[in-house]
Design a protein around this nucleic acid. Sequence first.
DNA 1: CGATAAGCGAGACGGTACGTCAAGTCTTATA
DNA 2: TATAAGACTTGACGTACCGTCTCGCTTATCG
Lengths: 226, 226, 226, 226
Amino acid sequence: MSTGGAGEPSRTGRPRDETIDAAVLTAALDALAADGYGGLSLVAVARAAGTSKPALYRRWPTKQRLVLAALEHQVQAVEPPDTSCTMCDLAECLGLFVTAFEAMPPGVLAPLLADGQDGEDLREEFMTRLFDPPRDAVRLTLARARDRGDLRLDVDLGLTVDLLASFVCYRAMFGHAPTTPREIEAAVETILQGIAADYPALLARAQGEPVEVGPHELHAAHAPTR
Amino acid sequence: MSTGGAGEPSRTGRPRDETIDAAVLTAALDALAADGYGGLSLVAVARAAGTSKPALYRRWPTKQRLVLAALEHQVQAVEPPDTSCTMCDLAECLGLFVTAFEAMPPGVLAPLLADGQDGEDLREEFMTRLFDPPRDAVRLTLARARDRGDLRLDVDLGLTVDLLASFVCYRAMFGHAPTTPREIEAAVETILQGIAADYPALLARAQGEPVEVGPHELHAAHAPTR
Amino acid sequence: MSTGGAGEPSRTGRPRDETIDAAVLTAALDALAADGYGGLSLVAVARAAGTSKPALYRRWPTKQRLVLAALEHQVQAVEPPDTSCTMCDLAECLGLFVTAFEAMPPGVLAPLLADGQDGEDLREEFMTRLFDPPRDAVRLTLARARDRGDLRLDVDLGLTVDLLASFVCYRAMFGHAPTTPREIEAAVETILQGIAADYPALLARAQGEPVEVGPHELHAAHAPTR
Amino acid sequence: MSTGGAGEPSRTGRPRDETIDAAVLTAALDALAADGYGGLSLVAVARAAGTSKPALYRRWPTKQRLVLAALEHQVQAVEPPDTSCTMCDLAECLGLFVTAFEAMPPGVLAPLLADGQDGEDLREEFMTRLFDPPRDAVRLTLARARDRGDLRLDVDLGLTVDLLASFVCYRAMFGHAPTTPREIEAAVETILQGIAADYPALLARAQGEPVEVGPHELHAAHAPTR
DNA sequence: CGATAAGCGAGACGGTACGTCAAGTCTTATA
DNA sequence: TATAAGACTTGACGTACCGTCTCGCTTATCG
């Protein structure tokens, strides 16, 4: 499962120094945070990690793979909550999504994907390793909501996931400021109104069983509509 | 108007050759489409445009500015429709938005914005010149809808615009496939359900006054479920 | 005789601005003194002279010709003395030669001659305008000395002139320090001993009719031989 | 010895390819001979040598250093003869000096020294590596002559060396034609007459023990006149 | 237990693009 | 027609990074 480093280390000969993997990934993250994807120099990363260029290329075939591994190195799993309060779950799940993306250095994801030299394989790998987990968490949360009857049956789950995920990414890419919990909740409310079987009931349930993610501000916006 | 090129051409001396501006921008677009942002070589662009590097740097101070000008060179204005059918207007407006972004070579926007070397000024310029026009068209369409009473009064217009715009950008950046009219309509419907004062009325109006953008498929999905 | 500027100004149309010639030559000399031949930028010269590049090229076909004209602009004629004291005349004449060359900015002559692009014509022009005058002064001085019987009849005047001139140039090119009068005199004495019909007589005459150029140090070196 | 290239190659890492040094220096000499110093393009040299620009800059920090190394690469050591015939030795030694300088492509030395960008260090290096060896050979020859009593005791050896060296350089720089052995001998005779303790004796010795460097023409000029 | 295979740091290798600068020519509007 | 201004093409400059390679050395495992 050790996704990160080893291309395919040989069984014989001197074994790889495992500490180098971590040192390089950390150094790469620092460099990415400092100079962005375009300004990333592999020789600088190697020096900062106390190693050399060939050691990098022994582990990752291209610059892109190294960056991908570095990003993967720092994300933590998104564990979708399941409190049976659809609105709360969705807000929290999306919050985790946002957190995962905002933890990455800004201005790295997009150039990485667009670098082209590594073609579709890289995009696929990126999706599998970085993007799908939080996305699947959102999808799972939505599926649970549908299964318990909170959503209309004709709702296109894929489209809804895209709507939510795109909002997160939009901010991560163009956003001047980070996405606040307040904004997340507002987005969730708007989307839910569009897909809920009985939105007022969901809202009532959320007010009755407030989640820890700022339940008070959560409903302030729509309170007058009640 | 001050479209693409001239940084600030002097009033005296030999005037700039206007044909060079266009030739360079066209060549740059071709090169971007062929090799992506990272693979863009200014000397290659200059050669393809039948001119030289200094002529480029005389017009655009950095690679980013040139690319920005090239992108701006090919987008056409988004004229928001106003047929008083909220759903139709919104779908068409968003379709224009998508078209504008999909006309750009893929994998250019993101690295351009993330290149960093030009800092915040570039992001601002990008927003002003490329992003805001279609965005404002959507906002205007939404504002018209609200003014004619189609939307709830407490709707956050900014948030809604972001939700729609982010969906477009998401596809333009991560999208494997282009965004189809069908997807646009589905997204519009979902969002509208979340913000409409009386969604069934909007839907009925759209069905009574079908727009040219595939009105039949448009409502097929949800109409039967009602 | 106006050697400097005008390539061949037309008789009709707007007449050339004569002040530009002088301004350019002066600016060129300043620039040469500051940055040497290799660091000379014509556009910088034009700006410093308050004019433009085309105005320069209208007057001098190449960079080399401009430099040549600039050097010529500042040299003054070498008037060979004729006091019938061979040693004094020669020393003074050579001193004028040295002065003429040391007045020129260092490190300009040689690169100018070696620039090649202007071929033999430039070398010829250089010789005619800059080098031959002081050289001819030395040759004249030597010829006068021979005519009055101070030199052996078989002396090769051309060779002797070259020996003396080369010493001057050597210092102007490789010399770390300027050539002092003392060194000039020592060189003259050595050469004279090699070509004089009766060196002791010349020496005695120089001592009897001391020239203003430091007569005391002049003979100090050889005094013990007396 | 430390001939041409390596600035200061590190002891660790991949060692430099020695063949590149030679290939570059040879290519540089060819280019210098073809286009002169001013027309020397480092990228052209690199291409001609089958290598790349960075490989050049790794070895020589500036264009000047490369040219200096190239010149040094082709000069051979000047071994001063010691036949106890002062006149013969001096003539041969000076002939070697001339040969060494005329082997260099014309019009390179002077612009190299005048390029300025490398300052005094370059001039010093040039002196040490190229100029001093033949110069010291002449000085040694003169010192031997003095030690065996052939020269007057008050002769300034430094000045004499300068007189002879300057004659060589003068021709190498301004010379239209190469310096012939005949001219060398004439110059030696003239100078020797100025510094010999007993010139007729030296001349007689040279005639009695003729050297291989054209002894017959050597004295033809002056012998009859006596 | 010694050979061998692969790891290691270091850095040179050929390429390629960068952004700048100068040369010499041209094209304006103005005088 | 000359002028000032400046845009034009060409091409070298010196630097930086890429991904590969070669070195001398160290460290395991296998024979």
